[in-house]
Simulated scan of single mutants.
Amino acid sequence: MSEQHTAPSLARIREHLMAWTTGTPLPDRGTGAATVLLDDPAHLDALLRGGLADPQGVIFVPGAGTGDPRIVGYDGSPAEPGGELSVNDEFYLQIQDYAAAAFMVLVGPTLVTVGNTDDFRYFLADADRARSTGGFPEFAIAGPVRLANLPGLGAGPAGDGPDRRLHVDADGAVSTSVAGVRIGTVGDGPAALRDAWLRRNDASDAPCAVCLDGAVDETERAGAVAARPWLGRYLAAIASLRTLNANGVADLRVSGFGGRLLAPLEGVDDPADQPGTPAAVLLWTAESGYLHLPATNRSFALSLAAARLAEALLVCGSVDAAAAFADHGKLLQVATFFADAGVRLVAAEPVAAGDGR
């Protein structure tokens, strides 16, 4: 019996395209790359024969689609700043380079790309400014805007790789993005591509070492990212601000960027929420606190008092350590509430005093 494929909806097409451009994983992991974009349809047969694409995934091919519902036609290019990529004359994605984005009014779905070393340095300057002052670039937190290739900007390679997304250029060279370094050819099998991707990442001081290596000097990129272990938090903060702003919450501040809601926490050495991409981001306004989970796009509204307790738990990493800044019983109550909601604010399960566990 032949395998049945269903033509993807426009919403699913958009979901796959945005996951492919940003380097964020889709929830359902299949066999092979979930999303593939070809620069030349001449490589489609080799791609399908080699088993590089997930049978339930989406393959973007220039021009019109084919009888295979997995294959979606597109026009334009995701690699040309100032250009546009369109699908079925229904979805249009503008492409803009990072250096110019700050000076433009971005209307509609827009992908901001780091296409060269200057773009990367502008990105770092904005991140450093946000870290010290709490001011984030307005274009980056706008609702329809996404940054391309987040793994290479500090989010790390988790969820990325050739079994998630692929780009096949006009010569048949394969990478994970249009800005990426070659890891093989369209004739290589999935195992060979995966091995090449892993080797490059294993040799890097700051993965992901593939998705930007065709555009940014890898030595400079790796050094800059390694020196800023909080870049994953910065990217998560951008996603959190974007979501909350889109839901009508304005004038937000982000914990760890320009200060803390609970001011004494600013003196904590090696805060637990510094490295990597956090599970939760603590934000606040003059009236309310918010805990946002970028991975699931889930938000909790809190009183400022509860937000201070949650922040202490995130920064200190445990109820006991946070008790130097707030009441132990109240901290335990907040930690337990979120644990019961499936959100862990501390490294270990909260334990009541005298519980004995």
Rank of each mutant, 00 (worst) to 15 (best):
M1S: 14
S2A: 12
S2W: 07
Q4D: 09
H5S: 07
L10P: 04
I13P: 00
L17M: 15
M18F: 13
R29A: 15
T31P: 04
T31I: 10
G32W: 05
A33C: 05
A34K: 12
V36I: 15
A42Q: 08
L44R: 14
D45C: 09
L48W: 04
G67L: 05
G67R: 05
S77A: 13
A79T: 13
L85D: 02
D89F: 13
I95D: 00
D97K: 00
D97L: 02
L106G: 09
L106H: 10
V107H: 10
V107M: 11
G115P: 01
N116E: 15
T117C: 05
D118I: 11
D119Q: 03
F136Q: 00
R146H: 11
L147D: 01
G154K: 02
P157V: 09
P157C: 05
A158I: 12
D160G: 11
G161V: 11
A173E: 14
V186T: 03
G189C: 09
G189Y: 07
D195T: 12
R200H: 08
R200Q: 11
N201Q: 06
D202T: 13
P207E: 08
C211P: 00
D213L: 04
E218C: 10
G223R: 15
A224K: 05
P229K: 09
L244E: 01
N247W: 06
V254I: 10
L262K: 10
G276H: 05
A279D: 15
V281E: 07
W284V: 02
A286H: 12
A286D: 15
S288Q: 13
G289L: 00
P294Y: 03
N297E: 13
A301H: 14
A301C: 11
L309R: 13
A321T: 11
A324G: 06
V334I: 15
A335V: 05
F338G: 07
A341I: 03
V343T: 11
V351D: 04
G354Q: 10
